[in-house]
């Protein structure tokens, strides 16, 4: 059982925690016999922690307006996203102050590390992208609801339902398929008879999170309630109604999906 010789690259990878268990054990045994090397590698590891401690707070800083506007060259081909970009960037800043403190207080500063918060942000982007659409708000309309639900269920890979929200004043407009970070996402749109719209974003494959309480995030002027229920993550977005009213709808959605 002669292990391959320990190289400097192994030691670097060890400091980064990137060796598999077997190799890690070999490196540990090697270091155990070499206190000076062990101290050097441990110093590298600590420096990494200090670096992250020093710069991770940048992740949750408010974006300066100039930077939020840096998406403007999009104007021609991506006009819609220019607006969304500068706006979501600003929203992220607001969210950093407003929304985050409502979440459980983990020390992780990176929003990207939180699947739920990331989902809320994507849902907000989807909301501002599609809810103003006059001619093409959805891909499949409510007149083909059975087809819509079957299609989205098939593509998302989980049996979905479009909750009925007439009791809280909303009727289904229809839905569409969106690209998510982990595969297709279902997006349902509802509106009141006065045209106020809300959207429900449903994604799968939320590993490790069996269930969560409702959480609230604000992205720009979009309010989002999001939660995880078994393998599905839900985010309900609105730019037009109050947090309390949105919460009522979120409760209705939840009850519909968990009779």
């Amino acid at each position: 059982m002669s292990a391959a010789p320990i190289t400097e690259a192994d030691l670097q990878a060890y400091a980064d925690g990137r060796l598999d268990a077997e190799r890690r054990g070999e490196v540990e045994a090697w270091l155990a016999a070499r206190p000076d090397e062990a101290e050097r590698i441990d110093a590298y590891r600590r420096l990494g922690e200090e670096l992250r401690g020093l710069y991770d707070p940048v992740l949750s800083e408010a974006l300066p307006p100039a930077l939020a506007g840096a998406a403007l060259p999009l104007r021609r081909r991506w006009s819609r996203f220019a607006a969304v970009a500068s706006w979501v960037a600003l929203g992220a800043a607001v969210g950093a102050i407003g929304g985050w403190e409502l979440r459980d207080s983990r020390t992780v500063a990176a929003p990207a590390a939180d699947v739920g918060a990331l989902m809320a942000r994507r849902a907000a982007v989807a909301h501002v992208t599609y809810s103003p659409e006059v001619r093409h708000p959805v891909e499949v309309g409510a007149d083909q609801e059975a087809h819509l639900v079957a299609w989205l269920s098939k593509r998302v890979g989980a049996p979905l339902r479009a909750p009925k929200l007439e009791a809280v004043g909303y009727s289904l407009v229809g839905g569409r398929l969106l690209p998510g970070d982990n595969g297709p996402v279902a997006h349902f749109m509802y509106q009141t008879n006065r045209g106020t719209r809300i959207t429900l974003y449903v994604r799968t494959e939320i590993a490790g999170n069996r269930e969560t309480a409702f959480r609230y995030a604000r992205e720009g002027n979009v309010s989002v309630f999001y939660w995880v229920d078994r393998k599905l993550g839900y985010a309900l977005s609105s730019a037009d109604i109050s947090k309390d009213d949105l919460l009522k709808v979120a409760n209705a959605v939840y009850q519909q999906l968990n009779p």
Binding site: F81, A89, A110
Partner: peptide, 10 residues
């Protein structure tokens, strides 16, 4: 575009 925006803080 969305993902690009999300990468701005990083």
């Amino acid at each position: 575009a969305q993902r690009l925006i999300e990468l701005i803080p990083r």
